[in-house]
Amino acid sequence: MFQGRIIDTKLRKLSIQDAEKFIASSDFGASIFFSGTVRNQNDNKSVIGITYDTHDALVIQSFEEIYNEANEKLEIKNKAVFIDHAKGYLNLGEISIIIAVATKHREEAYKLSRYIIEEIKKRSPIWKKEHYQNSESNWLKGNPLVNEKN
């Protein structure tokens, strides 16, 4: 059972309640909710907000791939996974990502939750532009999907 979405922050906020509703099932004995929020410091700079940019189709595709990989790589077949990621501007403390997982046992749930966030960081086309107290802003460097060309 899977749901992955990009949430336009101009239209609505990310909601843990949405995640709870989606993964609720008596088939599962363990559930984990991970949320990422905008923090006020990065590289010794005072951050006041972040703009998230996404390639929506590729992001959703990557979420589905990550979900499907868990069957074989982690050997977790029975599971519910909910992933929401923000697109647009967020203030300090607002939620940028929610990953909710439900599995039969806690060990699988911890493993799956960690796997999903690490893989999203590596391969989902999402970008962050930090906005600072001094009115400047900066796209964060990120990880390339290809080796550098000359």
Binding site: I97, I120, W127, K128, G142, L145
Partner: peptide, 10 residues
Amino acid sequence: IAIIPPIGGG
């Protein structure tokens, strides 16, 4: 075509 610069969400 879409250009996909180095990524980093979450």
